[in-house]
Design a binder for these strands. Structure first.
Lengths: 191, 191
DNA sequence: ACGATAACGCTAACGGTTAGGAATTTGCAA
DNA sequence: TTGCAAATTCCTAACCGTTAGCGTTATCGT
């Protein structure tokens, strides 16, 4: 998959990054996001505060460590689908799978943590928006545009609006279908 | 419209609030948002820093002073429309008017200021989301729900996604129609 | 081995924000 | 008018995320 050539330097850097993120997440889960300061995280991970910010752009990013993978999955679903399915169908399938993953048993504590903090909820919103911008490029290509027009951007945002809404909904899978029905209708109308 | 009974206390409080917001906005426009600190604003408005935060929950809120009116317009457009138009049509008209206002000649400097700051752009996003939550209630009522279901919330968000997108678009009015076509199609599909 | 560079550390600060508590103003009734 | 409660403002001192400046250590290529 993503086997990079790893020099010792890169391996150590990655290890430090992971150690920081792991330490931070377990502290947040145990004592609450707001109750744990960056200085404490740094001390517990045995690094300097400046080192924390050398690896992560903000405190919130410590929690959403590995979110690049989500973006890759989304873009891949549209660009790498078989010719048998439409982009909207492929996206629906992928969103179902992702929502299933993100609402799974072992993620409950994580999302409870996110819900507990205004900052983290905001960061999540921005994260999906970032991913939506990447998805918009894939959708634009699918619809024959070299760069995203307003409609492409709108469709990408609508689809990714699933996550915040599905997490609130009593039946997440049903919410995905509900929303993707709307998106499919909008998509069909955009010709 | 909104003529509240104003005691002297309330009048003075409102005056202080306005004075702070006006001072802050003109300073931001003149010297840039990031270059002006809260302590400076307080000093220029001749109040204490704590007084600023007694009237506004954050620095960004100083800029988007009167945003409650926008929410009122949106909700009013749906709930107070004549029986002749559908909710989607009424909303499209109102959004056209609002985008026209917000892109008008005298608003150019204001939005240039917003665009200049990451914090302000984020705050704007959150603002529209707040308003979308209120609009979702009106849409839910229109569609016969006592409280918003997933689809209602989604439609409200889709419609209010107009603003960030329209401001980027070369032809804002056309962008409104583009997006409201999508929303109308989604709305029609949601039955 | 050695110079270049990346990673890390330390200190001190900046800027938004808040707690604590005093001082002042307003509303209202005696 | 006087007195009292509530609302508003003020001041000080901090807290916390974040960054700049600069020195130290580890790793890489040669």
């Amino acid at each position: 998959m993503s086997e990079q050539q790893t020099s010792r330097r890169e391996r150590k850097k990655a290890a430090t990054r992971q150690a920081i993120a792991n330490t931070a997440l377990s502290m947040f889960l145990e004592r609450g996001y707001d109750a744990v300061g960056i200085r404490e995280v740094a001390q517990a991970a045995d690094v300097a505060v400046t080192t924390v910010f050398a690896h992560f752009p903000s405190k919130e990013a410590l929690v959403f460590d590995r979110d690049q993978g989500l973006q890759d999955r989304l873009v891949q679903a549209v660009t790498g689908r078989g010719a048998r399915w439409s982009a909207a169908e492929a996206l629906r399938d992928e969103l179902h799978a992702m929502v299933h993953d993100l609402t799974g048993e072992q993620s409950v504590a994580f999302w409870r943590l996110v819900d507990s903090s205004e900052d983290l909820r905001e960061y999540e919103t921005r994260m999906w928006q970032r991913h939506a911008d990447a998805l918009a490029v894939a959708i634009a290509a699918d619809r024959g545009h070299t760069e995203p027009v307003t409609t492409d951007k709108a469709l990408a945002r609508y689809a990714l609006g699933v996550f915040p809404l599905a997490r609130d909904a009593p039946d997440p899978a049903a919410a995905v279908d509900e929303i993707m029905d709307l998106v499919a209708a909008a998509w069909a109308a955009a010709r």
